[in-house]
Amino acid sequence: MTVAGNGSELAIEGIVGKADFTGRTMEQINENKEESFGRWAIKIQNISKSFEVRGKERIEAIKDINLWIEPGEFVCLVGPSGCGKSTLLNIIAGLEQPDSGTVESCPVNGDGCAPQGNRLLIFQESALFPWLTVFDNVAYGLKLRHTPKEKCEQLVHSYLELVGLSHFKKAYIHQLSGGMKQRVALARALVLDPEILLMDEPFAALDIKTRKDMYQLLLKIWKETGKTILFITHNVDEALILSSRVVVMSSRPGLIKREYRMEMGYPRMVESAPMQKIRCEILQAFIDHPASEVQGGLSDETVDE
């Protein structure tokens, strides 16, 4: 495994680079899309999806979402609760069909077109199988792909080691703590070498200490494997600490409002001046939008860090 970041996007730890203070609106993003995104891992174009509510009213969950993600990018999608973030993630993962629009992926691994098994989800609550041991959970996807037994064992070991759980391979899921479960979930997804890792508020249920450990682990894994990550959160600070690009969504209908390139290095301090500025802008963007739509998504953002 080597560091496969993409140039300036992946700043070296400790060195604070410059942040894109202003942020860009959708118009600006679309204008120079072609030039700034020469390579892409996932291309999301004009995705819209609406749901029927009680058989009458249709509610637009997400509307005309355009998002190009470069290989090796760590994109955080921030938005208030109920803005359709999870719907978008499910569509990318191929678990739901959009009303219109397409999700394309660069055929890096040869069969890059099939979303199933290539775009892997990590959920907020543990989706690990309680009837399997830690080892068998991580080996699950490999067995579906008929990976030879020896290779499978070797891969599972190396990824359990990566997440620091090699001593727990024989444990059952209920014997693990919340943070350990998410570590296993990470290993279970990474072992399949997905083209993109889709993370749906994966650390929302963890306590602050565990969450900080998970940030470190995730950044370490990102740097070591160079995986493309699309991370969803309603926690602005989380997005600022982790990502190389923050994409801000509004709700009802869920659409992309702004995006910020985060060119500063790691580890980051939310208290630093440039971070505070972006933070204020993002929170402002939530509030600017019809205030009633921000369903308590803001309340825990100020206390967390």
Binding site: G94, Q116, F123, L128
Partner: peptide, 13 residues
């Protein structure tokens, strides 16, 4: 439902 979702996501059908 999340077990079914996770299984399908990893390619089980």
């Amino acid at each position: 439902p999340i077990y079914i979702k996770a299984g399908k996501n990893m390619g089980a059908n």
